[in-house]
């Protein structure tokens, strides 16, 4: 990052920066002069991320190896002096989490939740995007209406849905009763509660996926389709041979991002069910938050949870990257 403050070369020099070969001695110097441009472009982001996430993350890794809690981290507040008495405990925090019975239950549900949500987001989002990408009457109206859920802030959406699901006074049960059926305690039973939270998250997440896909579809040159039609390809063939490959860049990105995003989706679960009934709908993040942040905060425990979640996602991302590379993607 420090390199970004290097003196910019003259405009003419940089114009051909990429193709130029310098004779100047020293690899670093050469790297500097040929790459300063790229580095300058990413520097602001890198700096902000490093300070705001990197530092807390590094500290979190350290804390996770101690027994630090809100009670034993030293501090002085006015007349109260609290000595620092936390100690290094090695991997105890990790062992404690990994050996607790609930952990693996939560992993299983978190994975189910992530796969179901991302799968539905992607499938529905792509389907709608393809439909909207056709020449169609009222196309922009459809598009705006379908995107509306995105304009409702997530926490408001969570409240609306909780209200729709309400077992005694909710609209969904209201309609069921009008139809002569008995109401369902949507959020009171573990199975329906799980379906219910997935439905809320799908409702919230589809518009983003749809728009991202639509953006991707728009950048597929129309000439490709025209050529395929001339060659007599059916619409399914066109979809398989042009649309899917054309969306590949965007798809691989949004699926990966969506997975990480859903895996750590705190607000929906927290606001819709608060993890209930019991702790059935609790995913790893909400569970970790509750374990570590109710009452006297357990900083070391929460950090260990964070690192475990991070590790699981890193493994996932590395696997994903490998798979893509083996299929010839330049990742």
């Amino acid at each position: 990052m420090a390199v970004s403050t290097g003196q910019p070369p003259a405009a003419g020099e940089s114009a051909r920066g990429r193709s130029r070969r310098h004779d100047s001695p020293g690899r670093l110097r050469r790297a500097l002069s040929s790459h300063w441009y790229a580095w300058a472009m990413i520097a602001p982001v890198a700096v902000v991320m490093l300070v705001l996430i990197g530092w807390p993350l590094a500290r979190g890794v350290y804390l996770s190896l101690t027994d630090a809690t809100e009670a034993n981290m030293g501090r002085t507040i006015g007349v109260n002096v609290i000595p620092s008495t936390y100690e290094f405990v090695g991997l105890d925090n990790y062992l404690q989490i990994l050996t607790s019975g609930l952990f693996w239950d939560k992993v299983l549900w978190t994975v189910t939740w992530t796969v179901a949500c991302v799968g539905l987001h992607y499938g529905i989002g792509l389907g709608l995007a393809v439909m909207l990408n056709r020449e169609l009457r009222l196309r922009s109206l459809y598009r705006v209406l379908l995107i509306l859920p995105w304009a409702v802030p997530a926490f408001v959406a969570a409240f609306i849905w909780r209200y729709l699901y309400n077992s005694d006074y909710g609209v969904i049960n209201g309609f069921l009763k009008v139809a002569g059926l008995s109401g369902v305690g949507w959020l009171d039973d573990p199975v329906t509660a799980k379906i219910a939270v997935i439905a809320v998250n799908v409702w919230i997440g589809v518009p983003f996926m749809m728009v991202a896909m639509l953006g991707g579809l728009q950048s597929i040159p129309a000439e490709l389709y025209e050529a395929a039609e001339v060659d007599g390809a059916s619409s399914w063939q066109r979809f398989k041979a042009i649309t899917l490959p054309g969306l590949r860049q965007v798809s691989t990105t949004v699926v990966l991002l969506g997975t990480i995003w859903t895996f750590n989706m705190f607000p929906i679960i927290f606001l819709v069910t608060r993890g209930g009934p019991g702790s059935e709908t609790e995913i790893l993040v909400t569970y970790a938050f509750r374990e570590a942040f109710t009452g006297i905060r357990n900083y070391s425990g929460s950090a260990a949870w964070g690192v475990i979640i991070l590790a699981m996602l890193v493994v996932l991302a590395v696997g994903y990257r490998r798979t893509l590379r083996s299929q010839g993607d330049p990742w």
Binding site: D189, P190, G276, P277, G278, T294, G295
Partner: peptide, 22 residues
């Protein structure tokens, strides 16, 4: 006691599973 606030969550989860018949 300082831990007093932490006592409610386990009891709530238990109450919910009692009501749910689990």
């Amino acid at each position: 006691i300082p831990e007093g606030g932490q006592l409610f969550q386990p009891l709530l989860e238990g109450y919910q599973s009692l009501v749910g018949g689990q």
